[in-house]
Design a protein around this nucleic acid. Structure first.
Lengths: 335, 335
DNA sequence: CTTCGGCTAAAGAGCGCTCTCAGCGAGCGC
DNA sequence: GCGCTCGCTGAGAGCGCTCTTTAGCCGAAG
């Protein structure tokens, strides 16, 4: 590409404004410069349509202004059945936009992607990494923090790593939901748990068990994977084992909607025969039949806080290592 | 940062392998080198844990290996009510991963974001841009292509720009759905249309009108915005205007589910009293009550094709300016 | 035995920017 | 009025890489 055809550089702006490269750089980066030079430079920038070259800047500053969001979820599942990621992405995006950083999306479906992600991070391609939806004791968080890059997780990572994370009060929210059912006079309260290799699945089940233990009731558990279909299946299982159950706490709204459909299919009325409580408060919850009582988690806020914490880390500031956002029981008609 | 503390560079690998920087560069980029040098270089790379610096490479090659996905949707709406974006992102991601490119997500909620996006693109920050979900005659596509960067849109952009795009046969799919209703003996077929500033909304309505015109029936139209809630509202409107309607074609599955709920709330049975057909075939469609007959669009494939076309453009190859993927009527119980 | 062709490796320039450092003029205290 | 500090500017180095140019080497041909 010939120089003439290329985009304007600092050099050409400097020439046009009659100052040195350094002065133009100062103006661009908002450092002190005499008013007359500043005017000349700004004029030249406008006339030439100058935009700083990102790569050149990165090369010397060692900053990329890029933040990676890693979703080690099976690619097929990410985004497809849950409204969680979209909300988190949205929250992250809001904060990053403010800070003039950009979001790089890394879907890590295959094991091969893990290597790719580590390579990408090691290449100093991003300033920091957000990790969401970790399954089991994923080696990725530890690997990334060993490289020495700031990392913030969504929910407490399983395994031994002690990385900062932002989560919600899964246990407390679930316990509150179950206590609400018990207080309402329900005696046989079952649960549709989430995947037991994810914090959300584990802690919500623990909350169910804790609330049940307090009232000395027998637990009844079926495990799903947060999707609607798995909720249908799990509900049928629970009914087979315990046809007289009178309440269900589902660890996600999608599974709760599945339970609702299964209950209707077996001729049971909600909430008359069986009460149902979900978890998440996604948009759908307002439109289920009947509208779903559920535990709201501040999804957007999770994204915002994750991004905020990471930006602090990137800036070299300290952050609180753990952050638990509150959940809230939203009463509708299903329980 | 002291040199010792920094990550290894080409220089240090070269020193260790006893060759020149250029030779190491050749090995890294897979160019011909004698076996002995190659071995020495590879060994040094492994021992040092060398990873090429992305910014430095970008500076000279003018390639960033970054592809932007711009969603000019209101941030609140993107991702939140539709399963479309997640699927497209997934498809894009699959193709980019193959090509070793990365995905930068740009949510353009506010008008201010437009400027930010243009700046980002002008800074040579990305190699190409994918534009999805354009509303009305958005100035962004034209602005980006004026900068001279490869752009591929999702669906034909409204307005005068002639950019390459990948879309689906919205009109044909909608017409097929409506003809299916008419063939089944329905006589009063209404529609819940999508937003009329988006191609998906416009063309699906056109398909409805075309099929209806063929059979000389009167159209009955309410407009929604693809969300479940808007489907509920629109269905009530249609019923108010035309209580005897016996079929509805909704331009999205979410709106169809809303219609289903509204019909049930007014005591109508589906499909006995009113037949319902949706559009999209999202996961939910299998679980509605009754399961939803709908027009499937190959969402993942849209993402894949958009990415594939853009990569061709980035590589300087020619692409077909327009690409329309087929839709397919999926018969379930609602119609 | 010399010369030439064909190859690979080394050297060096340069991508566009930031940042240090020296220079320079102006303003201040003594 | 002289030196000193202070604020601004310009020159230049260098970030880590690619790529062109140049040098060096080997074998084959004359």
């Amino acid at each position: 590409m010939s120089r003439a055809a290329g985009r304007p550089t600092l050099e050409s702006v400097a020439a046009r404004a009659g100052v040195s490269r350094a002065t133009v750089s100062r103006v661009v980066n908002g450092m002190a410069v005499t008013a007359s030079s500043e005017d000349a430079v700004r004029k030249a920038i406008d006339e030439l349509g100058y935009v700083p070259n990102h790569a050149a800047r990165t090369l010397v500053t060692q900053r990329t202004d890029l933040i990676a969001l890693v979703l080690p979820e099976t690619t097929a599942r990410v985004f497809s059945d849950d409204q969680f990621f979209p909300g988190v992405v949205n929250g992250i995006s809001q904060v990053l936009e403010q800070a003039d950083k950009q979001l790089v999306l890394l879907l890590a479906g295959s094991p091969a992607s893990h290597a790719r992600i580590e390579r990408s991070v090691a290449a100093h391609h991003v300033d920091g990494v957000l990790l969401a939806s970790l399954h089991g004791a994923d080696p990725l968080p530890a690997a990334l923090s060993r490289i020495g890059i700031p990392v913030v997780c969504n929910e407490r990572p399983l395994g031994s790593t002690s990385l900062p994370y932002v989560g919600v009060d899964n246990l407390g929210g679930a316990a509150t939901a179950v206590r609400h059912l018990l207080t309402g006079g329900r005696t046989r309260v079952a649960t549709i748990a989430g995947p037991q290799d994810m914090i959300g699945g584990i802690d919500r089940l623990a909350g169910y068990q804790e609330a049940l233990r307090d009232s000395a009731r027998r637990p009844s558990i079926a495990v799903g994977d947060f999707t609607l279909g798995s909720g249908v299946t799990a509900m049928h299982q629970l009914l087979a084992e315990n046809p007289k159950l009178d309440a269900v706490f589902a660890a996600s709204d999608l599974m709760a909607e599945g339970a609702l459909k299964a209950l209707r299919a077996t001729g049971r009325r909600v909430p008359d025969d069986v009460a149902v409580v979900g978890f998440d408060d996604i948009a759908l919850a307002q439109y289920t039949d009947p509208p779903l009582t559920t535990v709201r988690q501040p999804i957007l806020e999770i994204g915002r806080q994750m991004a905020t914490q990471l930006l602090r880390l990137v800036a070299g500031e300290d952050v609180e290592p753990t952050m638990t956002l509150p959940t809230e029981l939203v009463l509708r008609q299903s329980a």
